[in-house]
Design a protein around this nucleic acid. Sequence first.
DNA 1: GCGGACTGCTTACCT
DNA 2: ACAGGTAAGCAGTCCGCG
Length: 769
Amino acid sequence: MKTLLDADYIVRDERPVVRLFYKQDDERVIEEVADFEPYFYALSSVDINVLAEKVKALENVTKVETKTMTDIKGEVEVLRINTKIPGNVAELRVKVASLQECREVREADIPFSRRYLIDSQLSPMENAENIGLTIASLDIECLSEGGAMDADKNPIIMVSYADNKGLNRVWTCKKTAFKAEWLEVLEGEKTMIEKLVQTIGERNIDLIVSYNGDNFDFPYIEDRAKKFGVKVDVGIDGEEVKTERRGMNMGARVKGRPHVDLYPVCRQTFNLPRYQLEDVYLHIFKEEKRDIDTGKMREYWDDEKKFPELAEYSLSDAVSTLKIAERVLPLQYELCRVIREPIYENSRMSSSQRVERLLMNKAFEKNVVVPNRPSDDESGERYQEPFEGAYVLEPLKGIHDNIVLFDFRSLYPSIIISHNVDPSTIDCKCCKKEEAHIAPNNHYFCKKKKGFIPGVLEWLVKKRGEMKDEFKKEADSQKKAILNVKQQALKLLGNSMYGYYAFVRARWYSRDCAEAIAAWGREYIQKTIDEARKTGFEVVYGDTDSIFITKPGEQDKKKIESDAKEFVRKVNEKLPEAMELEFEGFYPRGIFITKKRYALTDEKGLLTVKGLETKRRDWAEIAKDTQNKVLHAILHDRNPEKAAEIVKQVVKDIKEGRVKLKDLAIYTQMTRGMGEYLVDGPHIQAAKKAMKQGMNFKQGSIITYVITKKGDSISDQAKVIDFVEEGDYDADYYIGHQVIPAVLRILEALGYSEQELRGLGKQMSLEDW
DNA sequence: GCGGACTGCTTACCT
DNA sequence: ACAGGTAAGCAGTCCGCG
């Protein structure tokens, strides 16, 4: 049994050698492939043989052959141009492209080891679960003075390590009397780094995980190691870890022993207000992780009594990182297998990159020549040409009883499949418009030849169906879990296809296709809404692919549900085969505030909230929690007086200074670089003040701030939480701008007028908001 | 000089 | 750095007001 963990290439005797890093049984092996040459394609503007002759005369060309492939507009003759080493491609493609006879160069920007994986059709991480990978997590602590981390000055004081074969270690250089079986006191920083490297090697680690290792632990270790002349040669063949630029961020790459930074993975996998290790751990395991105030690192380090706390915290970082890895890696493995990408790359890819990678694999299988990536100018132009998206029905605002929710199962993917939406089938020559799939946007799609992307989608849907069937049949819970992850991965890829068509940097971008899909979507939901109304339902709300209905005058819940199910059956009879309207659920009560903002209770009293403040990271916990309680009181307990009582108490707590800072914190992401803001909102002004005191924020950082007492405007009052004392908060702001607006929206929708609320306000002693 | 109306910028959500 | 549709807050400006 073997599993492919990593791939790269080296140049030996002026020939490229692809290296495949496997774990085979219990051994680590490197397979070398020496007979694979880099190549790319050229399309000709004249007779392909004329171009071929010209190309043959160019330097470093080893082989030229003509081939028929499928392009967007149909079959094309292409020239496959082989060259000696990958390093030649950049120069050669320019020479070829500048030949008069050359129309276009294709597939010249695919990295060589990726090219090999596409052509060999090898899947990384096959058998990963069965082979028993040895996974290690690592984490460092360093002694920083006042916020800023500077690898030049501040030493590493602790390295913690945990692996899934039972070894837990904290290596430190403090001469301490504290003893623990996992604590090992070493001479100094240099020895600690050496110990880490040595342990990874000795324990034959297959996969290294970290939390923010790309941007912190590895670059830091590298810098410190350099100081001591130590090599961080943790790679399988003794290569050192290399931090490389990957778009806007860094990636710490370890050859053959993939390093997965769980921070980007978690940011993509979960939707949370913040993504510190503690937050993610709490979210997944519903359990607080040990934490310390890292601002007081010096104290923990110097004080012998406090030191054990630091050591335990450090160990818990490594241990919880490993636990998180075990939770999130299965989906990563699965994505690796489907898109045939090694895990180092896959774990740092965006969903559009994954879709594109899958399409490139399928293109190879189906003899399709891959379109080029657009230039910056081209994607800029595409960006200037937006199109109409989904339909959203204005909700009937207020409370509704006995709501039935329907939605179209995978609306966009099913439209793409049903109507064969593809850049190669749009307005085809082989069908008359009337005989084709006519889209609501003045285009039509071929009915004779299946498009490339609908074909790939169909494959994803079919595979997913198989996984779901096997899931149902499987009894073993571990195997069930794997099957479930498999279907999840396929679903993720399928659901990204529409967005990919509309993504301006996509190779297979097609505004016309995206627009047609959205237009069809609008047509299906609008027709369904009309049909529901004709059938005697009231349509309370609908968004894109979902419809909320009630049946006025009908009290019998069973009757409502059965009528609704009958309606679904009727609609489905008329829909294309791949499309389906699904009965999603029955809700005894719901409140609709505006488009995209509503709340429902199911029969067990479980609350579903969408879009309201409760769901937003940029509202304080005190406001979100109060809104949530008010919703529960109204929807489930049906008791507005209770709601009023809750608000009254919270307002009192705020006024009397009893609220903790963590409940007042507002989280807001910095979505661009500091210099790019035209208007500095509260989070930016708070961040700027904090940066003067040594803190660091960059694009993507989530800023945690509180509105304090002092200042001329809200932004002026905003301060990063680390610099705020307990009790220093603007009570009027939290009452008037947080709690009251959040609950008022609910009470207003209940039918209270503004005046009544002010009256109620007096009762509730809210008179001064 | 003040407050309400309005606009533009910004964010995070929904599907 | 997958899409468009949407609500909403804050900062700043405009406008009316003897």
